[in-house]
Amino acid sequence: MPQPDVPPGSTASEVELGRSTPEPQGSTGATGAADTAGGAEPAGGTRTATATGTAGADLSDLSAVGAGLDALDAPQRDSGRGVRRVLTAALPPVVAVVLLVAVWQVLWAAALWPEYKLPAPLDVWTSFWSRVRDGEVVGILWTSVHRAVLGFLAGVLIGTPLGLLVAKVRVVRAALGPILTGLQNLPSVAWVPAAVLWFGLNDAAIYFVVLLGSVPSITNGLVSGIDQIPPILPRVGRALGAGRLASARHILLPAALPGYLAGLKQGWAFSWRSLMAAELIATSPRLGVGLGTFLNQGQSFNDMPTVIAAIFLILLVGVGIELLAFRPLERAVLRARGLTGALG
């Protein structure tokens, strides 16, 4: 088989590149022969045997280059040093909290304010702990958290189809888009008086306020998730044979997931805030004691340790659900797509 050693009169940069790799000539010849034998010539193909043979040789040279490129190009993954990462993530906030308590202790010791305005950290802790011990906290948490979760889930059930409609139907977007954005900016506590007048002092009023807090965020999250899908993806989907429904299920929804998740996260935060506002304002024996009610009682009885304990619990639930539910979900979704920049 003729093997041109140096391509005569070659202006081809590709050939030179191909030959510049230190590939043993023997092996290229062998591959070339194999390629000729196995290569199914297409109908009407009139490349000469020589051409195909050397094409094979060139090809195996190129495949060596290709293998090198693959090795060089493939992004490296840094293997996570687990313990250290957890430490660097968890240590700073812990230190910050300890410092905060220390400053509080110092301010209290300086006795700048009367005790009923600034209680000792230890008093607050005692008040809090006694309520944990007698189980009161469990009941309070249950009342509020189950309300927030139910309200949030209802918000998801309403907000998701609404988001799909707004994103995909032009008239609906024109009609509802500005209203939803307006509602998203309106603090939902503003709805509490109206809700109480409409529904009375009951759960319906509270859920109404929670829904008005969460639905606009969830809807807008899904809409922006869908708006940000690169148009090439649905086009590729069509080229691959996806109909409208298959495209929604296999391409649009998964592609919109990061934006949707961001909307869900914000929707949860708004659910929780709205619920606290509603419970704080709308108190009634029929509504049971939630965290907001607990906070309200603290104020009524001039009981600062209870007030601070309630604030602490509200914070704890909000942060806890974010850290335990949304953060891992978001991380998994973003990491799978290589969008690790925002995760730090």
Binding site: S10, V15, A51, T54
Partner: peptide, 17 residues
Amino acid sequence: TRQAGADLVTGSGEHAA
């Protein structure tokens, strides 16, 4: 361009050029 294409690959580039 069958011939020219083959030439480009083998490196006998005059015709292809």
